[in-house]
């Protein structure tokens, strides 16, 4: 068990290193001239060269990488080309919005998908149709279109929710929730159906399992069978779809943030992309990649806790 945990952790670490390398490589594919973008068109060639030298961009790629990677290990992601602030500072400023958005959506997806799946296997045909409809909507209507419609209707027309902006949870939990309500709905709605279908499929499979029949033959009631035995055994498929959903949520969050003008990672990354701010982009790659790896690790742990057999795998 301990060895298994250790192995998983090491694998996650190796994956993280690979993510960092990938981040460095893909952001460095083109020929950019950060010195020129920082100093603007009026600066002389000598000034640009000096700026590039100050940034250490006249060194070899390997040297630049080891320098950057060394920083990453110490928790220093370098300095943004725009405004010359530390990347970590920028990311910590923009992260809470995206994290609130994604975490809240995850909770909504987890709860709703479970409720829908349970209702569906309990033989409610209308729930099935509901889930199917949701699945079609979620697949067909991208989050940002849905977000836009919600915005126009509930924020602009009825003025029930703010048009833009984010209130930190520490300042006012109610305002925090109010500001995130529409974005979260837009973000979560599409993924609910996917997770619900996964959970439902797994539940159906489990409910047809031999041991469920045997449990019922012993007089264990339908509710106990469903909630105590079936849900637990069906959890791996559901958890996996949630962890895959996490990646999709990150992507969706980037778009939804734009609609509601939320200052999150998406806003930061798009800004960094259009201004060629490589350090920020590399930071975002490392951070999001790290998040995905950590979430996957957590899901693994959760599965090991729920499914004893997974502990020996």
């Amino acid at each position: 068990m301990v060895r298994l945990l250790f192995r998983r952790a090491v694998a996650a670490l190796v994956l993280m290193i690979a993510v960092a390398v990938a981040g460095f490589v893909i952001t460095g594919l083109g020929n950019s001239d950060p010195g020129r973008s920082i100093l603007g068109p009026q600066a002389t060639a000598a000034q640009v060269e000096a700026e590039n030298h100050r940034l250490g961009l006249d060194r070899s790629q390997v040297e630049q990488f080891t320098d950057w990677a060394g920083g990453v290990v110490r928790g220093d992601l370098g300095r943004s080309y725009l405004g010359d602030r530390p990347v970590t500072e920028k990311i910590t400023n923009y992260l809470p919005v995206t994290m609130s958005l994604v975490a809240l959506s995850m909770v909504v997806i987890a709860v709703l998908s479970l409720v829908l799946a349970v209702a569906s296997v309990s033989g409610r045909a209308w729930v099935d149709r509901c889930v199917q409809l949701l699945a079609v909507i979620g697949h067909v209507l991208p989050g940002y279109l849905l977000a836009l419609l919600l915005l126009l209707l509930f924020a602009v027309q009825f003025q029930l929710f703010p048009v833009f902006g984010y209130t930190p949870i520490g300042e006012s939990p109610a305002q925090w929730l109010r500001g995130l309500a529409l974005p979260v709905i837009a973000l979560a709605l599409g993924s609910v159906a996917g997770a619900a279908l996964q959970a439902r499929g797994a539940l159906m499979d489990v409910l047809e399992a031999d041991y469920v029949r045997t449990l019922r033959s012993r007089g264990i009631g339908g509710r106990s069978v469903l909630f105590r035995h079936a849900l637990r055994n069906a959890s791996p498929a559901w958890l996996t779809s949630l962890s895959l959903g996490f990646v999709a949520l990150l992507a969706g969050a980037f778009m939804v943030e734009k609609v509601f003008a939320l200052p999150g990672l998406g806003t930061l990354s798009v800004e960094a992309t259009s201004s060629g701010d490589r350090p920020v982009l590399m930071g975002v790659v490392v951070l999001t990649g790290g998040l995905v790896v950590v979430v996957n690790l957590l899901v693994d742990l959760l599965q090991m806790w729920l499914i004893p057999k997974a502990r020996t795998a």
């Binding site: 048009v163 003008a261 806003t267």
Partner: peptide, 13 residues
Amino acid sequence: LSDPNTVLNALKV
């Protein structure tokens, strides 16, 4: 606010 639609909406409300 970088999006002009957001600016207009925010002014409206």
